[in-house]
Nucleic acid binder design. Sequence first.
DNA 1: ATGTAC
Length: 411
Amino acid sequence: MPSKNLTREIEVDITSKHVINDIDHGDNVRVRIIASDDNWIESDAIAQLKKTAELPGMKLAVGLPDLHPGKGQPIGAAFVTENIIYPHLVGSDIGCGMTLYEFKKSRRKLKFDKLEKQLRNFESIDEEVADCVDSPPDLSAFDFPNELNKKLGTVGGGNHFFECQSVHEIIDEAAFDCINVNKNSLFLLVHSGSRGLGQHILTQHVSQYGGAGIKDDSADQYLLKHNFANDWAVLNRQVIADKIERLVGSGLKNILDVSHNHVYPLSASECEALQLNTDQKYWIHRKGASPSNQGLVMIPGSRGSLSYLVKPVISSNGHSAISGFSLAHGAGRKWKRSDCKGRISHRFTVKELESTPLGSRVICENRNLLYEEAPQAYKNIDGVVSDLVDAGLITVIASFKPVISFKTTRK
DNA sequence: ATGTAC
């Protein structure tokens, strides 16, 4: 693969703006986009990244190769702040992420026609499964509404999905061997989050404090709720897998779980790697960005393309500070949701959209979602992954091919 | 993304 010019770096001087809340932000903020010149990124997303970088206490704003516009702040971005936390930069789906499993039942015994039929029953057991989760999170600890736990084990809408996959190509044999899975197995990738809970927490926070950030010495309540939502999201993905185990009659072995919407403190060595004053406290906000400092990461493409299992590069001075210890979380949208129906419905029939060029099947009874999540609505994952490779942030272990993608059986 | 908001 030819080496490309990477990292368009923009220095934004915000010294004269926004002196609020006793937070000194006299230093320049660094705004960085990790993308090659041939990776098209919407100008709105770059404008949102720069705008967000002007928030008080901001030290570093990184756009990953899947950067695209969001609601006010961009998606596919990581933000390092000093002594302040911004709940709206985490967003409403706190703890949203990816979990990868290996089906224990051998691939030969998993017939795809039968598997599809079994998975089509996924939502018919929503209630009974949610009601018998072994140790449901204690919502009363924060006065959260009891109904929230009824969503445990549900996928949700938007870009959420689960997908059965097979190994397409192993690029790094040694690293693949370390994962201790069979290359002939079927795999399950689950993408979901904290459903109504994260939404509730953000709404509650905004109604109490407005859109401003919180100084971290008074952020305990938010952080406790945020951590609760992260745990809830991890459990949600686990319960989704439990349902699939039950429907398919195969065990599932967990390989990795990675959240891409959260805020966490940076360690002392990470602060040092970013050349930040270690007397202060620094926070990494990730909005649609995977951590590069927590082990292996799965970067899925659209339902019509490959997903990549990658190993973050650990540089001599720790994990890669250049990207704010973060990676792309997916391909990134190319088209706005509202544009998809108009662009796609006259080109493809529903039947055509229910399978993909890679031969996989799509379970999505909701017409709008079928258009909004069509492969054409997303950028090419290969370019996103090669940008991360060329930036020295990852090495690729293996690629995975979709077999069955599940969105919803509800109209 | 959300048992949305118009």
